[in-house]
C-alpha cells in the first residue's frame, strides 16, 4: 500500500468519528490558487468546476440541512457549495470519491422510497431531514458535515463564508487587533464591580 492510499484509508477510517472527521489530508500548495478560483466562481454564480450541476444541487441541499436557513442565513447563503466544489477539485481531491459514492447511495435510498425520478433536493424539508437521519452516522455524512463547516467558517477567500455569514452566525470577528475589555466579565471588573 503506498502512502497516498495509507493516508486516504486513514482518513476514511477517521472520518467516522467526531474528532477524526475534522483532520483532513489537504494538499496545501494548491490551496491558494484554487481558493481564488472558488471565490470568483462563487461571486459570479459561475458553473461548477468539479461537480456536475446535478451533484452540486444535491450537495447544496444536504449542506443546507446541516446548517439550515431560518431567521438567519445558512450554508446556502454562505456559498458553501462553491467551497466544496473547489475543495474536491484540488486539495480535498482525496475526498471526492467518497463524496460521490455517498451521494449515489443517498440517491438510491431516495429512489427506493420516492420513485425513480426522485431527487434528494426535490424532497420537502421534513423528508430531507428524515432521509439524512438514516445516514447521519456514516463516514459520508461526517465528510459532508466537515465540508459544510469548513465552507461556512474558513476564510471567505476559500470560496465559502460569503460576506462572513458563518462568522456572524457565531459572533466571531477576524481582526488583527483587539483591546480590552474583551468580554462582559472582564468589562465588569474594569468598572470596579466586585461581583464580576
Amino acid at each position: 500500500m503506498n502512502n497516498e492510499q495509507q493516508s486516504r484509508r486513514a482518513f476514511l477510517k477517521a472520518s467516522g468519528s467526531l474528532v477524526g472527521s475534522s483532520w483532513l489530508a489537504f494538499h496545501s500548495p494548491l490551496i491558494l490558487a484554487v481558493s481564488q478560483e472558488a471565490v470568483k466562481a462563487r461571486d459570479s454564480g459561475a458553473a461548477f468546476e468539479t461537480l456536475t450541476a446535478a451533484q452540486a444541487a444535491e450537495l447544496d441541499a444536504i449542506s443546507a440541512q446541516i446548517i439550515p436557513t431560518d431567521d438567519t442565513p445558512g450554508a446556502r447563503e454562505a456559498g458553501v457549495i462553491y467551497f466544496i466544489d473547489g475543495a474536491l477539485g484540488s486539495f480535498g481531491g482525496g475526498m471526492k470519491e467518497a463524496v460521490i459514492a455517498g451521494l449515489d447511495d443517498l440517491h438510491r435510498r431516495v429512489q427506493s422510497q420516492r420513485g425513480e425520478a426522485a431527487l434528494f433536493s426535490g424532497l420537502t424539508a421534513p423528508q430531507q431531514i428524515e432521509m439524512l437521519r438514516t445516514v447521519e452516522d456514516t463516514p459520508f455524512f461526517a465528510l459532508l458535515r466537515y465540508l459544510t463547516v469548513a465552507g461556512m467558517f474558513s476564510l471567505p477567500s476559500y470560496g465559502g463564508n460569503r460576506d462572513k455569514i458563518g462568522w456572524q452566525l457565531v459572533g466571531f470577528d477576524n481582526r488583527h487587533h483587539w483591546q480590552p475589555p474583551f468580554g462582559w466579565y472582564d468589562a465588569q471588573l474594569t468598572k470596579g464591580d466586585g461581583n464580576a
Binding site: L18, I66, P68, I129, Y146, F153, V170
Partner: peptide, 23 residues
C-alpha cells in the same frame, strides 16, 4: 478559539450535530 474547530467539536457531546438546533 477559531470557529471551524468550534463548530466541529466545541458543543457538548449530546448536542445535535446538524440542523436548526445545532445552528
Amino acid at each position: 478559539a477559531t470557529p471551524m474547530f468550534f463548530a466541529l467539536a466545541g458543543l457538548p457531546r449530546d448536542a445535535p450535530r446538524w440542523g436548526s438546533e445545532y445552528k
